[in-house]
Simulated assay, not measured.
Amino acid sequence: MLKKTSAILTLTLSLMTPVVSAGNLEQSGDVLHLALPLTALSATLLIEDDYQGMWQLAATLASSRVGVEALKYTVDKDRPDGSGNDSFPSGHSADSFAAATFIYRRYGWEYGVPAYVASSYVAYSRVASDKHETSDVLAGAAIGALAGWYFTQPFKGVNITPIAYNGTYGVYVSGQF
Score class of each variant (00 low, 15 high):
Ala40Thr: 01
Tyr104Ile: 11
Gly144Asp: 00
Ala141Leu: 13
Thr10Leu: 15
Ser120Gln: 05
Glu133Val: 10
Asp76Pro: 04
Thr44Tyr: 04
Ser42Ile: 05
Val75Asn: 06
Ala147Arg: 01
Ala100Leu: 07
Ile103Cys: 04
Asn85Arg: 14
Ala43Gln: 13
Phe97Val: 01
Pro80Leu: 09
Arg106Lys: 12
Asp136Arg: 01
Lys77Gln: 12
Thr60Arg: 02
Leu138His: 05
Ala141Trp: 04
Asp49Gly: 15
Val31Trp: 00
Gly175Trp: 08
Ser90Asp: 03
Ala62Pro: 07
Ala142Tyr: 12
Gly157Arg: 04
Leu41Thr: 02
Gly82Ala: 06
Ser21His: 12
Arg65Tyr: 12
Ser63Glu: 13
Leu9Ala: 13
Thr12Cys: 10
Ala147Thr: 01
Tyr150Gly: 07
Ala62Tyr: 12
Val173Ser: 08
Ile8Val: 15
Tyr107Gly: 00
Ala99Ser: 06
Lys3Tyr: 11
Ser21Lys: 13
Gln27Thr: 14
Arg105Asn: 10
Lys3Ile: 13
Gln153Ile: 10
Arg106Val: 06
Arg105Ser: 07
Pro37Ala: 04
Leu36Glu: 00
Asp136Asn: 07
Tyr73Phe: 14
Asp76Lys: 14
Ala98Ser: 11
Arg79Gln: 09
Asp78Met: 10
Tyr116Glu: 03
His92Ile: 07
Asp30Arg: 02
Asn85Ala: 11
Leu38Val: 06
Ser96Gln: 01
Ser119Thr: 06
Lys3Gly: 11
Leu32Ser: 00
Ser125Glu: 03
Val137Thr: 03
Pro114Cys: 08
Gly112Lys: 05
Ala22Leu: 10
Ser64Gly: 10
Ser63Cys: 12
Phe97Asp: 00
His92Met: 08
Glu26Asn: 13
Ala94Asn: 06
Asp50Met: 10
Gly140Thr: 03
Lys3Asp: 14
Ser63Thr: 14
Tyr104Pro: 01
Glu69Met: 14
Phe97Trp: 06
Leu61Cys: 08
Tyr111Met: 04
Tyr116Leu: 08
His132Gly: 04
Val31Lys: 01
